[in-house]
Every structure is written in structure tokens, then in C-alpha cells.
């Protein structure tokens, strides 16, 4: 098992632990992102276990994981970009993508192929993150950008889903053509996952600490 895989799982677990420690303080802003982190960590742990004990392809997991990944991240964004985009549009996009994922898994792709649902979901997630940035720009409420936890989470989404877009687009070709190439690309993706979860951990930690500080200040005032 390559190192990056363990690193990726380690950062996922770290994000889950930080999220769980600050759960009460982050649930207002990051509830769905926290569930997404839990889903990601448990899926990758399952992947490691299944590879260790079975020689069968585990690509079928992508047909389940990707739609739910999009569902949770879209719900997370629904909470924060409501002033820019109507909630019902996001719900509609979620419904369309989930329906497509089911149709794709049953009729279009084989379950043993890498699901191409993520091609569409990553475009939509990058779009959501850009809408969020636009909202921040228009409202001009945040003075210090990188002191805001949501900015960290949004930067993570923007970079991760932008960089893995071409992998999602070409994944089945890459896997068919060259195992060596796939290994290199997966290593790169693995480090992107590490970076992605580090950013999310920073966001969770920052939000948790800010909320605790805010509460202690209000208690002192009371």
C-alpha cells in the first residue's frame, strides 16, 4: 500500500477527530462538511480493509461515494450561498445528480468502472465555491480573509475539485492504458487529498476555537 494512501487516511481521520472535538461549536456552519469528512474517512478505511482482504476491484464504491459526497457538499454550500442562488436550484441540482448517479450505475457504466458522476459533481462544486467567493466579495463583511474558517474550507474545495477534474475525466482511460501512469496520477491525487483535508482540519479548528472564544467573552460580559 503506497504511503500517500496512509497519509490521506491519516488526514481524513485527523479532520474527523478535530471535527468531533469541536462538533458543538462547528455544527452551525460545518455540519454537512463534518458529515462529508466522516463519510470520506470511513470510505477510505473501508477501501484499505477491502484491498487487504480481497483481490476484487473496489471501484463500485465510487458509484455510491461520489453522489453522497456531492449531496453533503452541496447541502453545505446551500447553507452559505443562499443569498446568491436560490435554495430550490441547489436541491434541484442534487436531485438531478443523484438520479443520474443511479441511472449511470444501473444502465450506463459498469459498477466495476470508475464512476464519471464526479466529472459533473466536481464542476458544480467548483462553481459553488466560486459563487461563495463572489458572495464574500460583494458583501465585503470579512476583513481578514484567512482568519475566516469558511474561506479555508472553500479554498480546499476550489483547489481539490479543480485539480482532480481531469483525472475524473480521464480516469477509466488512464486505468486501461497504463498502470504506471495511473500510479503516478493517484500519488498526485493522494497528496491533493492530504492538502484538502489539512485545509478542512484548519477550518474546523479555527471555527471551533473562535466559537469557544466568543462564548467565553460573552460569559465574561454576562
Amino acid at each position: 500500500m503506497p504511503v500517500y494512501w496512509y497519509l490521506a487516511v491519516a488526514t481524513e481521520v485527523m479532520a474527523s477527530i478535530v471535527g468531533s472535538c469541536f462538533y458543538r461549536n462547528i455544527k452551525q456552519k460545518f455540519l454537512f462538511l463534518y458529515f462529508f469528512v466522516l463519510l470520506g474517512a470511513s470510505t477510505d478505511i473501508w477501501n484499505i480493509v477491502s484491498i487487504k482482504f480481497s483481490s476484487h476491484s473496489n471501484l463500485w464504491v465510487s458509484h455510491i461515494y461520489f453522489p453522497f459526497e456531492f449531496l453533503l457538499l452541496a447541502l453545505f454550500y446551500r447553507q452559505h450561498i443562499t443569498t446568491m442562488i436560490r435554495q430550490r436550484w441547489i436541491i434541484m441540482l442534487i436531485s438531478i445528480l443523484m438520479t443520474y448517479a443511479v441511472i449511470n450505475a444501473i444502465f450506463i457504466q459498469s459498477v466495476n468502472e470508475y464512476s464519471h458522476v464526479r466529472i459533473f459533481s466536481s464542476i458544480l462544486l467548483v462553481l459553488f465555491s466560486l459563487i461563495y467567493f463572489y458572495k464574500v466579495m460583494v458583501e465585503v463583511k470579512i476583513r481578514r480573509l484567512f482568519a475566516d474558517s469558511l474561506i479555508w474550507a472553500n479554498v480546499a474545495v476550489l483547489f481539490f475539485y479543480s485539480t482532480i477534474f481531469f483525472y475524473n475525466l480521464l480516469s477509466n482511460l488512464i486505468l486501461d492504458y497504463s498502470y504506471e501512469l495511473a500510479k503516478h496520477i493517484l500519488t498526485f491525487n493522494g497528496y491533493m487529498i492530504v492538502l484538502f483535508y489539512i485545509f478542512i482540519t484548519i477550518a474546523f479548528g479555527m471555527e471551533g476555537r473562535q466559537q469557544i472564544k466568543g462564548k467565553s467573552v460573552s460569559l465574561k460580559r454576562a
Partner: peptide
């Protein structure tokens, strides 16, 4: 070609 498309795209 795949490497090129993937590399340039990414």
C-alpha cells in the same frame, strides 16, 4: 496523448 491532456488540463 492521455498524459499530455491530463498534465496540461490539471
Amino acid at each position: 496523448d492521455i498524459i499530455l491532456v491530463y498534465f496540461l488540463g490539471t
